[in-house]
Structures are given as C-alpha cells and as structure tokens.
C-alpha cells in the first residue's frame, strides 16, 4: 500500500480564466460521451429545416427571395435562443447531482462554474448552427454578400446566443428541478421565437401582433442575418424602427441582455450557494 504524502503539494489556486477552461473541458467531455445531448441541435435542427422548408415553404410568400433562403436565418436564430433552455437544464442537473457542491468546495471563483458553462454551451449551439448551415447549403440556401458580412452574421448569432445562455443560467440557478426548467423555458421560448419574423414575414400579421413581433429582439437579429447574408430584401418602409437598423439593434440587445442577465445569474447562483 502506498502511503499518502504528508507534505502538501504546491497549490496555486487557478485564476478565473484557467478554472473556466477546466470547466469547459469537463463539459465538452460530457458532450462527447453523451452525443444524444447534441440531438437537439443536430437531428432536430435538420428536421426543423426540412419540415419548414418543404411543408410550409410552398405556401408562404416571401418578398425578394425563396422561402428556404428566408427560413435559414430564422431557424438559426431560433436555435440560438433555445440554447438558453439547454444550458438551464444542464446547470440544474449539475446542481441536483451535487457535482456543483464538489466544485464549490474548491479554491476557485464560483463564477467559473457559470462562465465555463456559458462557453461550453456556446460551443454546443455553434455545432447546431454549423449543422443547419450545412443542411441549408444542401437545399439551396446561400450566403450572397461576401465573406466579411457572412462571418459578421455568424458572430452576431453567437453574441446573441451568449446573452440567451446567461438568461438560461439565471433560470437554471433559480429553479430546483430539470422538469420545472424545461416546462418554464419552453413556455417562454416558443412565443419568443414564433412571434417574430423568423418563420413568416410580419407584414401580414394583425397590427398589434406585428408591433410585438417587430420589436421582438429575435426579429432584429433575424433581419440582421438576412441582410448580412443577402437572403431577401431590407425591411419594408412601414416596418418598426428596429427592423430598419437590425445590426445595430441586434448588437445592442445582445450587450444589454448580457449585462442584465449575467449579474442576475451570478447573484442567483451565489444566493443559492449560501444554503
């Protein structure tokens, strides 16, 4: 039997970025070991793209382009918004299993548990966007405005996804069970992503609904992606102000929402950590 070393090893408590990298490493192993965790952003995404493109595609008229081109940016935005639900469930699951207790007993900043999760979730969602992009390319979606604008739209998606992930972390820190998180998040996420220009143009909605849809941050982001990728026309002149300046508005929303949700998430997590 080996004896334990009685002299203690050198301990250099990891900085927030180093601890974050380690937590990301752990979360990515999870994705690798449980590939079914990726089903939501892979198989489901492909299914959504194909269902919408072929079931609704024929009957929805979109100005200046075909429905497949119109759909792809919308459905990618939806995936980024739904990443908040995924991250919330993952966090609540960790909290229930007690692994977070273990992490909290270590000399690391407790925020690293959350920053690590935000980054691994972003990677998770990016995989979904890549899968949908590839599916889109196969069925005829194209990026028509050149490389720089194309990349810019992807960055915008990630930026907004980051804000949504912090919303998810906040909800995950507040709720006690995965089932509760799931129920709550899907109740919020469906209207948020459907009352928007994601799957159909807003022009033909009743005026009150159109107003809500056009001020929905999700619409600004979708419009921004469409314009940057050249998938359709700019918003009509009578559309609400955010759709006239979609890139600016989408960036602003992303920053504002992150600035609101990240501190809320950290304080909810700390508060929960007190008991």
């Amino acid at each position: 039997m080996t004896t334990l070393q009685t002299t203690r090893p050198v301990i250099a408590p990891p900085s927030l970025p180093r601890a974050t990298v380690t937590v990301v490493w752990r979360n990515l192993i999870h994705i690798r070991r449980m590939p079914e965790m990726l089903l939501d952003v892979t198989v489901q995404s492909v299914m959504f793209v194909l269902l919408f493109a072929y079931v609704f595609g024929g009957s929805i008229e979109v100005p200046g382009t075909n429905y497949k081109e119109f759909l792809l940016p919308g459905i990618m935005v939806q995936t980024m918004v739904f990443s908040s639900a995924i991250v919330a469930m993952g966090l609540t699951n960790d909290l229930q299993k007690g692994i977070v207790d273990r992490l909290k007993s270590l000399p690391i900043s407790r925020a690293s548990v959350l920053t690590g999760r935000s980054i691994s979730s972003l990677i998770h969602s990016s995989i979904g966007v890549a899968v949908m992009g590839a599916t889109g390319l196969l069925i005829g979606w194209r990026i028509r405005n050149g490389f720089v604008d194309g990349v810019l739209a992807f960055l915008l998606l990630l930026l907004f996804g980051f804000a949504m992930i912090w919303l998810g972390i906040w909800v995950g820190s507040l709720m006690r069970t995965v089932e509760a998180v799931q129920g709550f998040m899907f109740t919020v996420m469906f209207p948020l992503t459907f009352v928007a220009n994601t799957f159909a143009p807003t022009e033909k909605m009743p005026s009150w609904l159109r107003f809500i849809a056009e001020w929905n941050p999700v619409s600004a982001l979708t419009q921004a992606c469409r314009e940057l990728w050249g998938n359709g026309l700019p918003a009509p002149a009578d559309a609400a102000w955010p759709l006239q300046h979609p890139v600016l508005v989408a960036v602003t929303w992303s920053i504002v929402l992150t600035a609101v949700f990240a501190p809320l998430a950290l304080s909810a997590f700390r508060r929960r950590s007190r008991d």
């Binding site: 090893p9 050198v10 301990i11 250099a12 408590p13 990891p14 180093r18 601890a19 380690t22 937590v23 490493w25 752990r26 192993i29 273990r102 992490l103 270590l106 000399p107 690391i108």
Partner: peptide
C-alpha cells in the same frame, strides 16, 4: 482518472 484530473486542476495542482 478524469475525475481526479478535474478536481486536481481546479485545486490548483500542477
């Protein structure tokens, strides 16, 4: 082994 590595790294060990 990965469990040990995870906690070892977060404990600040080389």
């Amino acid at each position: 082994r990965e469990n040990l590595r995870l906690i070892g790294r977060l404990s600040g060990l080389s």
